[in-house]
């Protein structure tokens, strides 16, 4: 009986191993290439950031406009909705259970540290990131990247760097914008439902729940989300030769990998908070 069980287990293990091993190898290969691409981009940023500024700076500004300024309305709408759904109801609920003193802590822990950066990052990914992968993938498939190289223009410098910098700045700014709008709308909703606190008292309570460590960590986290999104998008759009048929698949792969990478970074920051 024992030997049958052992045989069964081994064959099961082999079957599962055979199924998941290629996927695991693929994932490791992607991770290695992505790391190499990140290092090349960092190297280019380090050595050439100020160079060709009259061409590169307007491109960074364009990217900030595309992935930041143009998303203000949708992020504003999300901020208003989150304000009512999360902040307003949290204030209400905490008052009902007699735990109003913990409202600020709850809002900081759940919304400011977690929800706001993730929401801003995911909005940028959904609204601009997917379009960017298609744009870059199509450019790669149609040979426009080789055309840049033929002109002596480094594609990492011209195509990748402005996007990574633009996305990073945009996610940081959109997160701050989302936080302010959400808190403002949440307060208004709670005030309409009978909250007695003045805006100064409410915002003071939230600010009191923040520690000095929140500011650098939130800047790093939101900037990290933007940089990760920019790098993964550019990697899938540019790093490998694509045909037009492969662009759609590259786009879905990019979205999945961006979400996973952002969540992993988020988990790393939770650990950092716990340690700190």
């Amino acid at each position: 009986m024992e030997s049958i069980t052992t045989t069964f287990s081994r064959s099961e293990v082999r079957r599962v191993g055979a199924r998941f091993a290629p996927a695991l190898i693929d994932a490791l290969e992607t991770l290695t290439r992505l790391a190499a691409f990140t290092l090349i981009t960092l190297g280019t940023a380090w050595t050439r950031f100020g160079q060709n500024s009259r061409v590169i700076r307007p491109r960074i500004v364009d990217e900030i406009h595309r992935s930041g300024v143009r998303l203000l309305p949708i992020v504003g709408f999300l901020g208003a909705a989150l304000g009512v759904v999360f902040v307003g109801q949290t204030i209400d609920l905490m008052k009902q259970v007699g735990a109003s003193g913990f409202t600020g802590t709850l809002i900081v822990t759940v919304f400011i540290r977690e929800l706001a950066p993730l929401t801003a990052g995911l909005v940028v990914l959904a609204r601009v990131g997917t379009a960017t992968v298609i744009e870059l993938g199509t450019a790669r498939a149609l040979g426009e990247v080789e055309a840049l190289e033929a002109l002596g223009i480094d594609p990492i410098h011209y195509l990748v760097l402005p996007r990574v910098v633009g996305f990073t700045i945009s996610v940081i700014c959109l997160t701050v914008y989302l936080m302010l709008l959400t808190l403002g709308c949440g307060y208004l909703f709670a005030f309409a439902r009978g909250l007695k606190a003045t805006p100064g008292e409410f915002f003071g309570e939230v600010a009191g729940a923040l520690s000095w460590l929140d500011f650098p960590l939130l800047a790093m986290k939101t900037g990290g989300f933007g940089a990760i999104i920019g790098l993964v998008i550019c990697y899938h759009g540019l790093a490998r030769p694509l045909t037009l048929e492969e662009v759609g698949e590259a786009t879905t792969r990019t979205v999945a990998q961006c979400v996973v990478a952002c969540l992993l970074l988020d988990a790393a920051f939770i650990l950092l908070y716990l340690i700190a």
């Binding site: 160079q51 060709n52 009259r54 061409v55 744009e135 426009e144 080789e146 002109l151 002596g152 223009i153």
Partner: peptide
């Protein structure tokens, strides 16, 4: 000619000139 679709005709032609001269 693998032109860059996001740039107009002049920007396409001027891109390498501007890039290499930072102009």
């Amino acid at each position: 000619g693998r032109l860059f679709p996001s740039l107009n005709v002049f920007e396409n032609i001027a891109l390498p000139w501007c890039y290499h001269r930072n102009a």
